[in-house]
Write a protein that binds this DNA or RNA. Structure first.
Lengths: 361, 361
DNA sequence: CAGGGGAATGTTACCGGTAACATTAAAATA
DNA sequence: TATTTTAATGTTACCGGTAACATTCCCCTG
């Protein structure tokens, strides 16, 4: 059939102008006369001409493509982040290529190359490994990129992270303000900065409020439901049983619920509970969990914005650092309704050392 | 700096050959002498030359880019599907561009255009609307594409779907084989083909096993935890209380658990439960749910394979239809351990009308 | 009315690869 | 040895846009 794809020169011929005039008309160049433009656009519409994207990319040296590298797209954290990235990107006529590395370094390398081949204008990395040669190489070449929720050791780079110390501090403070004195924490392993930072925030809050820090009230393990379950069983068999539990993330908090219910106790009447992350199920459970929002969607938004700025301004340095402040999501798992305004302590002064161990992320 | 990006002609000059020889060497053309190739590749390595992706895409007319359109990336179903798609695509050196439409038609249109501009070689649509003008237009133009888990009314097109009727049939059969006679179903609204099909499978199984169909045992509502919760409360207050509940998806099954526990009953001792989907949390709960796998990851795999075939063979017709058979995931929520081999009925004949209402997907 | 200036449009080159055809040199054959 | 064949490499054009510079034409001004 006559499916011989139309080019800008075909249109030009039919409109009896040069191909440049057509190009200009299509790009809203103010130099073309209104009448000419109209004539051209009519033809373009009638023939349903669409400029060849590949040619355009090639000559303009811009793909409007962003590469997103996450460690696992099935992890709801990254899914939500991806949504934030994608929405913001599309808003500005950028497209997102993505891949998930499943935390394998060689996959990261393959994918980065694939994406370079696809011609991405920049990268967003939200995978979690510390030392990543490919990424470091990109940084050396000043290729536009942004790190989300992580930081490479020693490298200066654009990044967007959540202040985990602050978040843990505030949620602990929330418990303190409700009048709880025996507060336990069950949190993630000590080789993840998130775990470390949340524990740190918890400790700082206790310190600032001059509360006793009881080592037996700290339980660590992987960030899983199991950990919450086992940890809670352990805590609840202590003679000096805690009144409140801070689950290092919402999965752990789920495990806490399991154990508490199994022991025939109730949340929040018998024991208060907070989580961290604000996962979808945190609001969706019978027990509506008080937790800290990781603001994943916004992190996505911001990282894209930074990246696009970087790309379009052709900046050569990485100067954008965003530390998002956490946001408490107060629901009912601490008996907020029961205890409201029971006490409302003020911290006796002291500044928190927020965002302390960032460079271990 | 001398950061003047290297071209193939620069390499050529330094290797004292023509740029075509370099191009050939890089593309494993057997015509270049081994010695020459080595000399060129050494230079390429030393100078870290990478061919300009955009130029290559432009001249070869292939982007190796696949556009994936889902309705919501935060939905774990699509996340898992995306993973399947992505893995398979990368395996064959293809990249995936994605976007989620949040079920808005105008977004679909925008995104499809954006992706066309990015130069995708083909599309995978996993969004759920029935009538989508942009998609229909692509089909008219015989543009390579595959539909996943849906089918456009009246259009012939490549697709990959799960046999929901069969899945529901089998899981109902599972309950029947365990000896349950009063089996209720709580499932999704009747305007979703998945809901319809699962109900149909349930009915067919009852019919084939000559079991009574009790209308009061059918509860419909949105595919949410709420529906499961409310439905169960309703069911369990009936005088002729069901012994088993079939939750139309795992979210509904979660709600069933909530209600059952609230009433002080236990699963599976007092009531058996099955779900559908095999969501992550289905295995992760205290109550390990017996359910039906939607084989999301495999659906992703297959759809990519079909698409790439379509692209590379330059087929002009849509002839690939894949109907995946469901897979039962037997855990313990029906007391499988307790009841094993209690009875093991055989259906008294009759063929199931599998995959009945596909064209309403 | 010559010449300057700006608006509208045209010409040409170029981006960095690949494809098609051309050329050279060495090996095989007559 | 002349001639054909073939392997290895080279030349040129082209893909379909955009950028830079050139040209026309008309109007305005001194």
């Amino acid at each position: 059939m006559g499916k011989q794809k139309l080019t800008i020169r075909d249109i030009a011929k039919m409109a009896r102008v040069s191909h440049m005039t057509v190009s200009r008309a299509l790009n809203d160049d103010p130099r073309v006369r209104e009448e000419t433009r109209k004539r051209i656009l009519e033809l373009v519409n009638k023939l349903d001409y669409r400029p060849d994207a590949r040619a355009r990319i090639f000559s303009s040296k811009k793909s409007h493509l962003i590469g997103l590298v996450v460690s696992s797209i099935s992890n709801p954290f990254y899914a939500e982040l991806a949504r934030g990235i994608e929405d913001k990107a599309h808003e500005q006529e950028y497209n997102v290529i993505f891949c998930s590395t499943e935390n394998k370094s060689e996959r990261t390398e393959t994918y980065v190359h694939l994406m370079m081949d696809a011609g991405v204008d920049g990268f967003i990395f939200a995978s979690s490994r510390l030392h990543e040669p490919v990424v470091e190489k990109l940084i050396d070449e000043h290729f536009p990129l942004v790190l989300v929720n992580r930081k490479l050791r020693g490298e200066t780079c654009n990044y967007v992270v959540l202040n985990n110390v602050q978040g843990a501090y505030e949620i602990t403070e929330h418990l303190i303000n409700l009048g709880f004195e025996k507060i336990a924490i069950i949190t993630g392993t000590s080789n993840l900065s998130t775990g470390i930072d949340r524990l740190k925030g918890y400790q700082l809050a206790l310190r600032d409020y001059r509360m006793e820090f009881n080592e037996n009230y700290v339980i660590q393990g992987p960030f899983t439901r199991e950990t919450g379950y086992e940890g809670t069983k352990q805590l609840l068999t202590m003679k000096k049983r805690p009144e409140a539990i801070f689950g290092g993330n919402d999965y752990i908090a789920m495990g806490v619920i399991d154990a508490v219910e199994e022991l025939g106790l109730h949340i929040p009447e018998d024991i208060a509970l907070v989580g961290f992350d604000d996962n979808e199920f945190a609001s969706n459970q019978r027990i509506r969990l008080t937790t800290v929002s990781q603001r994943k969607y916004e992190m996505g938004n911001m990282s894209v914005q930074i990246l696009i700025d970087h790309i379009e301004r052709k900046e050569t340095d990485y100067t954008h650092r965003v530390i998002l402040e956490p946001r408490l999501i107060i629901r009912e798992s601490c008996g907020e309704k029961l205890w409201e305004k029971r006490k409302n302590k003020q911290p006796p002064g002291s500044e928190i050392e927020a965002f302390g161990s960032l460079d271990r992320m």
